[in-house]
Design a protein around this nucleic acid. Structure first.
Lengths: 220, 220
DNA sequence: CAGGTTCTTGACCGGGCGGTCAAGAAATCC
DNA sequence: GGATTTCTTGACCGCCCGGTCAAGAACCTG
């Protein structure tokens, strides 16, 4: 912190206030460090678990002093929350980028599902952290919010598809929940290494099967 | 559960050796204490998380000294492992009890699915612990073994059903994995409170839907 | 170069954790 | 009733964890 010993001296306004506060002004170097911490922590948490991985493990792992951690993040919990938040943002951004090539709701739905599966395959680490997150309150709360968002996204799409008669009538919210459920489960498989060599021989085939499974269950 | 296979009689010399060793000779009182610890720990771990719940929390919660814990269990980790093991035993026992009323493989499959869903609804706590377990190695290892067992059980059934022509041809192992995946996911919903009031209005309806979903996906 | 801000260091701290153990209390056995 | 075994107590221990902070280094900006 450095901002003068105790208390905020006259040093300018807003930021600086607390340790690894919210919206710090980072230089390029700073952003790199932060990213490195985020990345290494994600990997470590996924491999050995959140609690068994200490802050010291993380800073040692990237070869910096402990203070660095608390310069960029206010606490260990907040770091995990940040990982979770960024993951959701990243997933949704990726989904949107894949979806805007389709132009009817059903096509968007399919693109969204494919995007989720592809993202899951690329982010097994994060999926493990998500599993952990559901088991402790502050994290579960954030995950519930995230889940709501994703389900609402999907529900809108399903409702549109129903309106257009592209899929059979039904409660859009329930259908959306089912879709998310299936994609979650499939994602978890890759995160947990549950897939047999044969089963994941072709990721594309796998995704085709999954998509068909979802759509058949829904359009049927 | 509880019951347990009453030990081998004849106070062999073996036991007694260490703290909360493996196969201690327990009196009725002892079994009660052990069960109380198991039950309270399960609830606490599910509510607040494994690591945030200390051994002191547990013993304080049932009003005994700390030594009691280590009389019945060799370590906190071993306690969780034990909870997980007993849960699997209990689930499988329940499944078998429900399945032997059916007599063709397809009927057994359906009964097994229903049994899993009913059990999940009654054991939301344990399901949370399972989620946690997947995130740390010693527990994940045990869970992988358990999952193998359940999938193998199911695979046999599916293979029989295919032989009889009751369901369409396909890789039994993959179909079994899909069935377990769906039931897991549905179980998680109740554990996580993901169900809306409306959706869980009737557990039976819900189960019917789920069963139909699985069987349609498979027989289709 | 001075002056400010961003970043880094690492010794340090209080506390809570998992786990131990010597000393008994309760049952149970003979 | 003595001896044996099962169970219980709770003070205690060492460790290591998350988090702090005074002291700089590095890097801007002018």
């Amino acid at each position: 912190m450095a901002s003068g010993k105790d208390t905020q001296s006259s040093t300018g306004s807003a930021d600086s206030s607390k340790g690894g506060g919210d919206k710090r002004q980072l230089t390029a170097r700073g952003r790199d460090r932060r990213d490195a911490l985020l990345e290494f922590a994600t990997k470590s948490f996924a491999e050995r678990g959140f609690h068994p991985t200490s802050v010291s493990d993380i800073v040692d792992g990237i070869g910096v002093g402990k203070g660095v951690f608390y310069w960029y993040f206010p606490s260990k919990d907040e770091l995990l929350l940040e990982i979770l938040r960024e993951a959701l943002t990243d997933l949704r951004r990726f989904q949107r980028s894949q979806m805007n090539e389709a132009n009817d709701p059903l096509g968007e739905l399919e693109a969204g599902i494919r995007a989720s599966l592809a993202w899951s395959a690329d982010n097994a680490d994060v999926l493990r952290l998500v599993m952990f997150g559901w088991t402790e309150e502050p994290f579960a709360k954030a995950l519930r919010r995230g889940r709501r968002i994703v389900i609402d996204d999907t529900t809108k799409l399903v409702a549109q598809a129903i309106e257009q008669g592209a899929i059979a009538d039904g409660d859009p919210a329930m259908l959306a929940t089912a879709i998310i459920g299936v994609t979650d489960e499939l994602g978890r498989h890759s995160a947990l290494g549950g897939l047999t060599a044969k089963a994941q021989a072709s990721v594309d085939d796998f995704m085709d099967t999954a998509v068909r499974f979802c759509l058949r269950g829904i359009t049927g």
